[in-house]
Design a protein around this nucleic acid. Structure first.
Length: 524
DNA sequence: AAGCGAATTATGTAGACAGCATGTC
DNA sequence: CTACATAATTCGCTT
């Protein structure tokens, strides 16, 4: 065991004190906290007390600028990260844009960043060791149970990040922060001397079990109740579950549902997947969700279809949860929107007194969030209005895209061909975050919603317009390199005729001009 | 079987300004 | 009285 380390008590914040001590030792630290907000706040607090070394200032400033330039328009989060970067500090969580996440990780590895305040997301999967690990929060909010102690396994994950053998660390330190003497004893008993809890099988969750049963039938691994049971008896789940009778009942229930939803047929104990069931399994959809989507799609013919129809449809699935929170003061507003769009909503509205109603209202808000995105609102507005960070909106959009794609496939199978093109449109719009009018332009490579909008606003609205527009004018709008590329895509290769391309130049014409100007001014 | 951080609201403080009293011509 | 700073309180969110 190590001898007790004395840390100078400079501030009334032990995490900060330990961080400062770590810097004195010329080492790095990871701080684990339980929420994204805390990670940002703690990082900011620490950064305010750190003065970076003179020789590192410039590089940190560059880094800071990179954080601001990740998005077209920096969000509050970007500015916060940039502020921390200037002091060699960063925060890390799932809400961070992937490019910024990379910036944080890379620059911690190369030593520019000394302290990262992070949510547990960093301990899971990403290998980013530090000399010191500071575990500020050992409790985390968990559903109806309030603040609960984190699993011992997770504590060990945190500790496992301590020590960098590649930096010749022969040891690492993991430090827990206790609020009181009694909590200190608790921590020692539970975590340091405690036993790791049993690992629970993921199969125990019903949606996963459902998906599995269908998949086993669809792939012909099991074609009867008996073979199905034989398979599950061998799994870890059954081993834990022990009560085979109960498991059998659950499987029976699932089989009945699958048959009712027409994903399988049951003929004298012969199980067979239907065409639809096989596709559901291929799409890796939870059969429950697949059935829900199908009922919504069938309802579409009686509804006034709008963007919100499909957006709400996917928002109301289990796959998109947790949904966006509806604040008290906006509750009424969202309810009004729900009423306003009533004729367009494809899912059934639960009664106001059912517990599901809350989720329904949340699904409306989530749909409104997607709607803003496909109406070209940027990350900053999404963060301000919906409190969704860039990293999180990406994750949500990806799930929505997958479900819309699945809906498209399902429409084909249940012969609702009229919906396919509508779904395809929404899908593209989700991908690019653009209004429908931009879709023709978005077919071009290296044209995203920003460039497409610029072109559109300058009366270049279709591929035909792109063909006809003068190259110089196009260059002025979106830069020469891009113009060359898209002109080529519409069948006009101008590379050798009119334009000379400078070798090694990757930036657009405008930035080159500016650079030249500055040079000239200096030489005068 | 909560607790943090942010937002909002209350409270405190200093300085600007106008009105009034007083003094001088 | 107003404008601003600071303290106290409430609000919202958590994976």
């Amino acid at each position: 065991m190590q001898k007790t380390t004395q840390i100078k008590h400079l501030y009334d914040n032990n995490v900060l004190n330990i961080c400062l001590d770590t810097l004195e030792k010329d080492k790095q630290a990871l701080v684990f906290v339980n929420t994204k907000n805390s990670a940002e706040a703690e990082a900011e607090r620490i950064s305010k007390k750190i003065k970076p070394a003179e020789k590192e200032k410039q590089k940190l400033e560059e880094l800071s600028q990179k954080a601001l330039k990740t998005l077209d328009k920096p969000t509050k989060q970007c500015q916060r990260l940039a502020l921390c970067f200037r002091h060699g500090v960063a925060f890390h969580h799932a809400g961070l844009h992937s490019q910024q996440r990379e910036l944080v990780e890379d620059n911690f590895r190369n030593g520019m960043i000394k302290i990262i305040c992070s949510t547990p997301s960093l301990a899971l999967g990403i290998n980013l060791p530090a000399f010191r690990v500071i575990i500020r929060d050992l409790k985390r909010f968990s559903g109806p149970r309030g603040m609960t102690w984190i699993p011992v396994l997770e504590f060990e994950q945190f500790c496992g990040r301590a020590g960098r053998p590649d930096f010749n660390d022969t040891f690492g330190e993991a430090i827990c922060i206790a609020q009181s003497e009694s909590e200190k004893e608790n921590i020692i008993d539970n975590y340091i001397e405690g036993e790791t809890e049993e690992i629970l099988s993921k199969l125990a969750v019903e949606p996963i079990l459902r998906t599995y049963v269908l998949s086993l039938i669809a792939t012909d691994f099991a074609n009867s109740k008996k073979t199905l049971m034989d398979f599950f008896k061998k799994t870890f789940y059954a081993h834990q579950f022990k009560d085979i009778q109960k498991l059998s009942e659950i499987i029976d229930r699932i089989l009945n549902k699958l048959a009712e939803w027409e994903f399988i047929s049951i003929k004298i104990d012969k199980l067979e997947a239907t065409l639809l069931g096989a596709r559901v399994s291929q799409l890796y959809l939870d059969p429950y969700t697949a059935h829900y989507l199908i009922t919504c799609l069938k309802r579409a013919k009686d509804k006034l279809l709008r963007d919100i129809s499909f957006l709400q449809m996917v928002s109301y699935t289990l796959e998109l949860r947790p949904l966006l929170n509806v604040r008290v003061r906006e509750y009424e507003l969202v309810e009004n929107k729900a009423a306003q769009y009533e004729t367009s909503i494809l899912s059934l509205e639960p009664s106001m007194f059912e517990p599901e109603y809350e989720e329904y209202i949340k699904s409306i808000k989530t749909a409104l969030f997607f709607q803003e995105w496909i109406n070209e609102k940027d990350d900053e507005i999404l963060l301000e209005e919906f409190n969704v960070r860039p990293g999180e909106s990406r994750a949500k959009l990806e799930r929505a895209d997958w479900l819309i794609y699945a809906s498209q496939e399902l429409s084909r199978l249940i012969k609702l061909h009229g919906l396919i093109s509508e779904l395809a449109k929404i899908r593209l719009r989700l991908k690019y975050g653009a209004k429908e009018e931009l879709l023709p332009l978005l077919k071009l490579k290296s044209v995203g919603r920003t460039r497409a909008r610029k072109l559109f606003n300058n009366k270049i609205k279709t591929i035909e317009d792109v063909k006809n527009v003068d190259f110089t004018q196009l260059s002025q709008l979106i830069g020469r390199a891009t113009s060359l590329s898209i002109k080529k895509q519409v069948g006009q290769d101008l590379r050798e005729e009119k334009v000379v391309v400078k070798k090694g130049t990757r930036k657009g014409q405008t930035s080159l001009k500016k650079y030249d100007k500055k040079k000239k001014e200096k030489s005068k």
